Simulated scan of single mutants.
Amino acid sequence: MVIAVTRAGKVALLAGALFLASCSGAPDGPAEPRTEFNIGWSIYAGWMPWPYAQQAGIVKKWADKYGIKINVVQVNDYVESVNQYTAGKFDGVTVTNMDALTIPAAGGKDTSAIILGDYSNGNDGVVMKGPGSVSDLKGKQVNLVELSVSHYLLARAMGSAGLAPTDVRTINTSDADIVGAFTSPDVAAAVAWNPQLSVMKSQPGANLVFSSAQIPGEILDLLVVDTATLKANPNLGKALAGIWYETIALMQRQDETGEAARAAMAKLAGTTQETFESQLKTTYLYSEPQAAVEAVSSPTLMTNMKRVRDFSFSKGLFKGTSSADAIGMAFPGGKTLGDPQRVTLRFDESFMRLAADGKL
Rank of each mutant, 00 (worst) to 15 (best):
I3W: 11
A4S: 12
A4P: 04
A12H: 02
A15K: 13
A15G: 04
G16K: 03
A21K: 12
S22I: 02
S24Q: 08
G40A: 15
I43F: 05
P49Y: 15
W50N: 05
Y52R: 05
Q55C: 04
I58P: 07
I58Q: 10
I58H: 13
W62C: 01
K65A: 14
V73L: 15
N76S: 14
E80S: 14
V82L: 06
D91A: 03
T94P: 04
N97M: 05
N97Q: 13
N97D: 14
M98E: 01
D99H: 15
I103L: 14
P104W: 00
P104G: 02
A105S: 09
G117Q: 14
D118N: 15
D124E: 13
V126P: 03
S135T: 10
G139C: 08
S148Q: 08
R156H: 04
P165M: 12
D167K: 10
V168H: 08
V168E: 06
R169H: 12
T173A: 02
F182D: 03
P185L: 10
Q203C: 01
Q203W: 10
G205Q: 04
V209N: 04
F210D: 00
A213G: 06
L220Y: 02
T229K: 07
P234R: 06
A239D: 03
G242L: 04
I243C: 11
I243H: 03
L250M: 12
L250N: 12
D255E: 11
D255G: 11
T257A: 15
G258E: 12
G258M: 14
R262V: 14
R262N: 12
L268E: 11
T271W: 07
L285H: 09
E288V: 11
A292C: 05
V293G: 00
V293Q: 01
V296G: 01
T303L: 12
N304P: 06
V308M: 09
S312A: 15
S314Y: 08
L337W: 06
G338S: 09
G338H: 01
S350R: 11
G358I: 03
K359M: 12
